[in-house]
Structures are given as structure tokens and as C-alpha cells.
Amino acid sequence: MSEVRDPLGRAGYGRLAHALIACGREGFSGELRVPGSPGGAFHLRAGLVVAADSPGAPGPEALLLRSDRIDGEQWAELVRESGGARWPVAGLIAHGYAGAAQLRVVCVMALQDAAFAIVAGRVDGCEAVLGTEPYAPVAVGEPPARLLQEANRKLAALAALPHPVRPDRERPLPAAVDRPLTPLQRELMGHADGRRTARDLAFRTGRGVYTVTVEVARMLGEGLLECAGPTAPIPIRMPVRAPVVRHRETPPPPPPPPPAPEPIPVPAELPRREPGASGITEALGPSKSGASWKGFFRLRHGTAK
């Protein structure tokens, strides 16, 4: 049996990819529900994905509140004014909390993060449902194939880190370190308690689950966080080939014994080790910078390449 395993399961991911791409090819409008862990849903309009939501990723309202343009009380008041709307876009613009372009960016970030959370988890099935509307759609939808390709690229980037983690698996603890930290590192260390996963930390800090998962992996590699046990590898999907077994009628003759090895000279002193590459050192997420939208827009671009 091959040691190459898939965090999703080949059958589960294949079912999701087949169903989502088929919805795009047929111009489907509705919701593709994906039960699993964490599971979620893709919302399509004329074959394009205009929204995605998952219990494994913060939604657009959490990302907007993280920007400090609006606080919790102001958000609750807007929801009451709009009659209970989950995404009171008209009130946000009318009260000057955010512009239309800024809200579009938040919706795109939430869509892509939810897609990553669904693909990184376990897929138990797919169900297409007609007649549903998302609460925070993007104006221009994403082709399903491109959305899946981007989610897989993020999984590959995460797996390539020296200490990869999964969004819902490892539960890190702060390590005893005395060194300068970035604002994101300080924030994550303040919430890491050995019980919270990267997904929990994403909800706690109001950041994207991919951004937090990559930063947790980097902090483990730098010794800023530690886990009780070794981190589980995140394998990349690839075809598994059975080994070729050749049967022989008669066993071949044994090879001649190798010659005795020559003595290895002992150096007078130990060789000096050349330092290796430093790896990825930049922080993923922006600092929490009050009401500045410059820090907010970095949320989308601070990901592992």
C-alpha cells in the first residue's frame, strides 16, 4: 500500500471537483452543498461561483470587523436597521463605514478562504439545490476550475513549508522565546493555548484561515510555537502506481562479496558547516493598524507563494 495519502480522500475530492465543474459547464444557478468536515457550500450564478461559505473560515462580516472600520455595536445597529440582513451593504455605504470597492474586496477574500477551507477538509458528498441566494455575493464570479486550482495551489504551498500544519488538526502552544515579534505573531501567541487549532485562531483574530494556518506553520518552524507531538505531513495529490513485480523461474546467483573498505582518514579538525537558506521569513498578515485601509488590503496579498 502506498504511503501517499490525501487529507481529503481521492474519492471525496474527485466528487467535489466533478460536481463543481459540471455546475460551471451547465451554467447552473443555485447552491452546491458540500457536507463534510468542515464542509460548506458554493453559490453559483450562471455557472460562476459568486460566494462560498464554510464553518471552517471566517465570513465577510468577520473580516470587515477586523478592519476596525466598524465595531460590533455599530454592526448590530446596521443589522437591525436593515431588518436582519446578514450583510447590510447599503447601510455600510450610507453610513460611511466602507466603500463599495472595499466591500467587494472583502467578499472576494471570504469566497476564496471558504473554498480553501472546504478543499482542505473532508468531503462526504455534494448536493445541488436550486433557488438559493448568497448573502454576500461578488459582482464577477469565479470559474469553478480556477477556484479549485487556486485552493490546491494554497494546499501545495502549505505542504512545502518545513513544518506544515492543517487548519483543524494541530493545537499549538507558545514557546518560551525572547525575541522581537511581528504584530501578527504577538496576536497568535496571545491566543494559542494548546486547545485552539489554526482555524480557531482565524476566527479568534478575524483573519483568513489560510493566512493564519501558514503563519502558524512558520512560527512552528521558527520555534515561536510548539506542539505536543510532531506535525502530520500534508501530502500532495498524485497518482499511485503499483510496484512492478518480476517473477523468475530460478533465483539469480548471489553477487560476489564486496572488497574490504579502505580506512577513512580522520581529519585534523571538524569541517565548518555552511549556513543554509533562511527559508520564508516574511510575515503573512498585516498589523492591526487602526482605521487604515492599507493594512486591511494587505490581508488578501499576505499569503505563501
Rank of each mutant, 00 (worst) to 15 (best):
R25F: 04
A157H: 14
D200R: 04
R300N: 10
P255A: 02
N152F: 09
H43F: 15
A85D: 14
G121C: 06
R179T: 15
V212A: 01
A242L: 13
L284E: 06
A17M: 07
A304M: 08
R298A: 08
D6N: 13
A76T: 12
G279D: 11
G141L: 01
H18Y: 12
A115I: 03
W293Y: 08
A157R: 14
R204V: 07
A192D: 04
G30R: 01
A198C: 08
G302R: 01
A217Y: 02
P275S: 11
A176F: 11
E249A: 15
P252A: 12
A11P: 00
G24C: 07
P164C: 09
L64G: 03
P137R: 01
L130K: 05
E77I: 05
P174Y: 10
M238R: 15
L224K: 05
T281C: 09
D53H: 07
P38D: 06
Q102S: 14
A175C: 06
V140H: 04
R241S: 13
P261L: 11
P38S: 08
S292H: 07
T205W: 02
A51H: 03
T303G: 03
F42I: 03
V209S: 01
V49K: 04
P255H: 04
E3D: 15
M219R: 03
T182G: 10
L8T: 13
S37M: 10
L65F: 07
L78D: 03
A46Q: 14
R272F: 05
E133L: 10
Q149E: 13
S278P: 12
L32T: 01
D6S: 14
V34W: 00
P134C: 09
P164T: 10
E127R: 15
I70F: 05
H191G: 02
A192E: 04
R298I: 06
P286C: 05
F297N: 06
R25L: 11
P38V: 06
R272V: 14
F28W: 11
R207V: 03
A283R: 02
G223F: 07
A192L: 06
D113G: 07
P251S: 14
T303E: 09
R204H: 09
P253Y: 00
P172S: 08
C107E: 01
L147N: 03
F28A: 04
